[in-house]
């Protein structure tokens, strides 16, 4: 089980977002990334929230810089639409890529990417909004609806060979009100690949809600650590006290 630091990026800045809408600048992502490495993050996720909108990705330089001093896995997402885009991101130092919009529009891209880079390097990022009795997949950083149900998309992405699923609740994202455990459970029940929970973490009780109640394999934390409300060390301590199988980290 992993505890992941998630950094949402707009232009060259780490930003605070609510419901995936970028609100304001927090600071230099390099500085935060290095701090989270030192504090024992098991992995870092970088998401360019506006890349999809402008069809570009400004993360290359950030990733190149971060991967010089950070010796843990790095996942990068935002406007990856082709094998070529993926290659550039991997060459910058990413270990995994996260795709949302392009995968929903051209699902066969998942098969192609998995074949070229291996399933383990392909994370399907799902941004979900709650409907009455289900969840709908959104694309373009939560701006556009698709009429695709999360449950069906999870199954299809798994069958097509993705290696991991990052599920973000748009409703909970940036609010610190806790995970949407029903959404997370819907995902973990419908796939055999590891699942990363994102959106809503705001309290140490969410450690249990994610790992135990929803059976996710990793939780991604953003605002809570960016604003020093909770530290990665506290989260790890909490997970260990629950007897969960997380990395022991005492440095």
């Amino acid at each position: 089980m992993r505890i992941i630091g998630r950094l949402d990026i707009k232009n060259e800045n780490l930003i605070k977002s609510i419901n995936l809408e970028g609100l304001r600048v927090i600071g230099d992502p390099n500085k935060f990334a290095k701090k989270y490495y030192t504090d024992g993050a098991d992995e870092l996720i970088f998401m360019d929230l506006v890349a999809s909108l402008y069809n570009r990705n400004s993360l290359h330089d950030i990733i190149k810089n971060v991967s010089k001093d950070v010796f843990i896995p790095i996942t990068v997402g935002g406007a990856i639409r082709s094998i070529d885009d993926a290659l550039k991101i991997f060459d910058s130092g990413a270990d995994k890529i996260a795709i949302n919009t392009a995968a929903v529009k051209y699902p066969n891209l998942i098969n192609l990417l998995a074949k070229r880079f291996g399933s383990q390097a392909i994370v399907i990022s799902i941004e979900a909004k709650k409907k009455i009795n289900s969840w709908e997949v959104y694309i373009e950083s939560g701006r556009e609806q698709t009429n695709v149900s999360v449950q069906n998309w999870v199954k299809e992405a798994t069958d097509r060979g993705c290696g991991e699923i990052l599920i973000t609740s748009i409703d909970q994202e940036g609010t610190g009100r806790g995970f949407d455990t029903e959404l997370l459970t819907t995902v973990t029940k419908n796939t055999s690949v590891p699942v990363i929970a994102s959106g809503g973490f705001g309290d140490l009780k969410d450690v249990k809600a994610g790992f135990v109640e929803s059976k996710v394999d990793a939780i991604a934390v953003a605002d809570a650590i960016h604003h020093n409300k909770i530290s990665l060390r506290q989260i790890r301590k909490k997970a260990l006290s629950l007897g969960l199988n997380v990395r022991e980290f005492n440095q």
Partner: peptide, 17 residues
């Protein structure tokens, strides 16, 4: 991993510390 394991619930890939 999937063929070797007898556990149906095994998560593959192993992405794990």
């Amino acid at each position: 991993l999937k063929k070797k394991s007898k556990k149906k619930e095994i998560k593959v890939p192993q992405i794990n510390w």
